[in-house]
Design a binder for these strands. Structure first.
Lengths: 190, 190
DNA sequence: CCTACCGATCGGTAGG
DNA sequence: CCTACCGATCGGTAGG
């Protein structure tokens, strides 16, 4: 992986967060990096491949966060708290990327969307669902549709993936506590 | 309000949901309506004003839904259930617009964003927060930061504002029940 | 003079 | 990786 490729990814990621896929031009990226537009096309087949590289690289980071939470042990309820804390304490830029993943998916071509969707579920959704399902099996969480449980947890964090809420800093730690408290009480086994 | 203006709004709304702001051209809208591009510019100063008109018109619909829920009475916990049921049973197109509102806000110019932001809070966020705060004052909901309570409720519904989840039909009624159950148990007074 | 458009084209920029 | 371009399309506006 060349230095320039890395530099392109870093710069393009920042611009993508600010402008979205269609609002961002290859010309713009090239100028920000300080290279010609052709240089971008040397490293990435087209605009879509560049977007995909940014998003998939980020999915790897998310996966690492989730794996770390699961490895740190504790029961599933502690893991949910830890997950919320870890996700919300990410820098605003990283949280924005989670939102962009689902948001810009619709802009992808059919094959690219299929590729991304697979990684999105494998590295992100399925991992969280696995954590929650384990908690249900252990009787630590109430038994319900694991998909609804997963998307509810993600959804609760979603507002903090928008710039409007973040003001470019992570939300205070007590927001994570409040979210965890609502979710865990709502998901308590009965 | 002329017929053509209405027709433009209806058509542009559908295209906006599919393509997003930057992915949608005035040309495309004009062709879909069956008029010239100049006709669009007769009714709307520019592309941004058209987007704004679509979103603000939809905020009025949301406001009506919330007002209706509050008018139907019942305690705040019943109103939360009713709100979730009503929002999730909206057609996929309407739910997609809620997501677009927050999503495309970032693409607006500074003055346009200020205008929209005011309407967004007045007709949507503040109404829900008012409902929840009333519930807290009555002791029907646990006392906590009303903003966190509001965004948690909205966030839980967010996944169902994405096409990936909706498959163009409303989620089954028991999803609304499950969401309400998690939220209301998590928000139960203690 | 008006409202409600039209066909054609402007200067720039898109992805490649 | 660059310079020099392309076919097409972008948002917006001219005169009538």
């Amino acid at each position: 992986m060349s230095d320039l490729r890395q530099q392109i990814l870093v710069t393009a990621k920042i611009l993508l967060i600010k402008h979205g896929y269609h609002g961002l031009s290859m010309r713009q990226i090239a100028e920000a990096v300080g290279v010609s537009k052709a240089a971008l096309y040397y490293h990435f087949k087209d605009k879509e491949e560049l977007l995909l590289a940014i998003l998939v690289a980020y999915l790897d980071e998310i996966e690492a966060v989730i794996d770390q939470v699961r490895a740190e042990g504790g029961d599933s309820r502690q893991q949910v708290l830890l997950l919320i804390e870890n996700v919300l304490s990410q820098p605003a830029e990283k949280r924005a990327l989670i939102r962009l993943s689902s948001q810009e998916m619709a802009q992808l071509s059919v094959p690219a969307r299929a590729t991304f969707d697979r990684a999105y579920h494998e590295k992100f959704i399925d991992k969280i669902r696995g954590l929650l399902r384990a908690g249900m099996d252990q009787g630590e969480l109430r038994s319900m549709d694991p998909d609804v449980a997963t998307w509810t947890l993600l959804g609760m964090m979603y507002p903090y993936f928008y710039p409007a809420h973040t003001a470019d800093v992570p939300p205070p730690a007590d927001v994570a506590e409040q979210l965890a408290s609502i979710y865990l009480d709502g998901m308590a086994s009965r």
